[in-house]
Design a binder for these strands. Structure first.
Lengths: 146, 146
DNA sequence: TTAGGACCTAAAGGGGCTTGAGCTTCAAGA
DNA sequence: TCTTGAAGCTCAAGCCCCTTTAGGTCCTAA
């Protein structure tokens, strides 16, 4: 086994995911089936390691596996225009921004709930009160979004 | 059928969830099995409607069903101290804050990626380049978090 | 009466893994 | 050389939180 090849464990460490996840990616054909050694264990090439790193990085950025599949196809054809990649990234950015907005609204409401908790018994606890009664929620707009 | 009772459809509308979701909550015993009318259709009381509203509101705030189950138990015992409810809400707030931090970092990276895309062919597209090479990612800290 | 909307059950699907059972292989130390 | 324990293997099921599908029954209004 040459130094520039990886066992599945080393590859997982390199790319920052779990061994099981790698096998899962192989199963759904996001990663190619690698070579095997004499004992039937997977042996990965540096190119395959790169590919997995790409996938894991994109996942960490929140891309869906579908989007990643498209990006990988693009990466395999470097002479095509990159409008599609840009589009996928833009879409991802949009989703992330929406999610941040939504979470920021939730954070405000949670904070208000917690701050107002008069804190003795459940019966005068704002946390439960607010959850029980939608109208006591100051910023109820976010329920309609998404 | 009295005016203050709900069919499952009306209840779904009232609480802001789907009919199937209500049946699912019944199945996992988050909602009680309601009475049935002569035609075996579910008939909900106002109390049950309140309970579902509580659940849906909490879900909209991102609480897990497990946490909601606990909150519901608390709500059923109004004379207990509310520390547990407060704790669950605090925990939820912490998770939301972390998520916002993570997403904000991702947003910055996505924006940088997109802005730098020189935009002609895939071979000089920063989107793909950055995804392929972790070291080209300026703020790579967030991969270790969580 | 009839159309069509709302309801029923049971089971499968989905996304993206994770866990578990029950095995084999590898690498390092005694 | 033997042993031991980590790492690997396959296949299947589980997880979260629903959603979808199939194939029916019931209700309501025209």
């Amino acid at each position: 086994m040459r130094s520039e090849s990886y066992t599945i464990g080393k590859l997982a460490e390199f790319a920052g995911c779990s061994v099981q996840t790698i096998r899962y990616y192989e199963q759904i054909e996001l990663m190619p089936s690698p070579q095997r050694n004499a004992g039937n264990q997977r042996v990965y090439s540096p190119e395959q390691a790169q590919r997995l790193q790409f996938i894991c990085h994109a996942r960490a950025l929140g891309f869906h596996l579908d989007g990643i599949r498209k990006l990988l196809q693009l990466a395999d054809h470097p002479n095509q225009p990159c409008a599609t990649a840009d589009h996928i990234a833009q879409q991802q950015l949009g989703e992330v921004e929406q999610q941040i907005q939504r979470l920021t609204a939730l954070k405000a409401e949670l904070q208000r709930m917690i701050e107002q908790c008069r804190g003795h018994t459940v019966s005068d606890c704002r946390v439960i009160e607010v959850l029980a009664d939608h109208s006591k929620c100051a910023a109820s707009d976010h329920f309609t979004s998404d």
